[in-house]
Design a binder for these strands. Sequence first.
DNA 1: CCTTGATCATTA
DNA 2: TAATGATCAAGG
Length: 477
Amino acid sequence: MNRSRTESSDLPYDPKSESSILKRGQAVVGLTITDVLAQALLPSTTLHPKDKGKIGGIIQECWFGIPCNNRPEPDFNDAGIELKIIPLETGTKKGLRVKERTKVCAIEYVDLARQEWLTSHAKIKLNKILFVYYIYDKANPERSVIKHCELWKLDDSLSKRVITDDWIRVRNKVKKGEAHELSESQSNILGASTTGQGHGRDMVSQPMTKILAKKRAFSLKPSFTNQLWAAIQDPTKFESIVEVMPDITGLNFEAKILAPLFDLEGRSLVQIAEQFDIEPPKGKNAAATILKKALGFKHVNSRITEFDQFGLEARVIPIRTKDYRPWESTSFAPMDLKEFVIEEWEESSLQQYIDYILFIPVYRATPKAPMDEKRLGKSFFWRPSKEEWSIIEAEWRLFQAAVKEGRAKTRLIQKKEKIIRVSDLPKESDTRIIHMRPHGEDGDDMDVDHLGNPVVKQSFWLNKEFVHELVERSFRK
DNA sequence: CCTTGATCATTA
DNA sequence: TAATGATCAAGG
């Protein structure tokens, strides 16, 4: 007791007080890591250049005066607050994005099988988190700037229910002796990500079976922390699904979203617009506009908090009435080829886009049918299976290799009256799931590849035939 | 003027 | 009618 009093009095804040901790945290905003080191409360023990948690350790020790430890308690134990440091980096997209998942606590399989959510290690860490965001400077980590600090609470929102459900799902798998089959993609927010030293030294035992499992830790998925960060920057941009569906939970999430869409199946876009008393919007995003309204959202242009938190993307797909084939492929954001060639598959932007999709089919007999002949089909969710992921990865590598060889280079060729640009990349017919296609603003939207060749801006697209398979598959469910 | 999602258009 | 390069529309 004496000791804790001495420790507190040495600190420039009260580690028992939530508001004092938050105030101390906010005072670090604007400083660089060098600044923090210059006014360190404790000498940092985590200065090894290869230590991945280095910056987190420095802030914890030097700024908050908490020695690093691997105890299961929250860092500010008296206040029940955990400290989490989140690196931001400029991604291929505009603006800052969260660089990686946030580790919450290690998973000890045998112990986890015996835990209950309410008293679990994970929940103790997740109850209250002081998030400190900083801009990661790769070339000069010490120059990284701390950008924002705020207190997050595991309150009664949908994210709490989803996190709870994620935790229980993992625990149940571990209980059954299936720890080796865990994957982050089975979780919406709280994933079981692999950890360890690498080199095959990270296999540990688990309950029920002799099969060893990769060592894992609970972690908050990047899509979740990314949404927190985006909401910090512009809170008005988001609308929460709990407002329109109060009884939604992590377990009934998909069913809850699908229900209103199923109710409208077969109706034309004009009928749907009438039912929700909106003007039938024109233009290319008409269908998306109507469907957002159908789900009960007030604003057509707001982003849906939970969709972002889950990394979920809703896409309208035009389907040919006759045989359920898509009229068009589905595109993802254009990519910078110079970055694409040096990207690792493990952290490729494509993975984020494809990870979780809600497909909303809109049927029509001809490509340009009028709105009153476009009818809503059966919506469905898709997450790539393990097999599909390995195909996507292989095809991604195929295109990366092609771009590396300079095969994205554009040649001008005469086609009848017109002159068009062609590349030498693999075609849609060469792959199962994804392909690369031009995706510029217009014909002059050119780019330069890593070799300096002129190229047309390119995107990844989902193959039409593959989406057709998914549509067919959705009928059987 | 750029991003993003959605088509359009031409050719074989 | 499939394949694939080119472009549009709306929001920001």
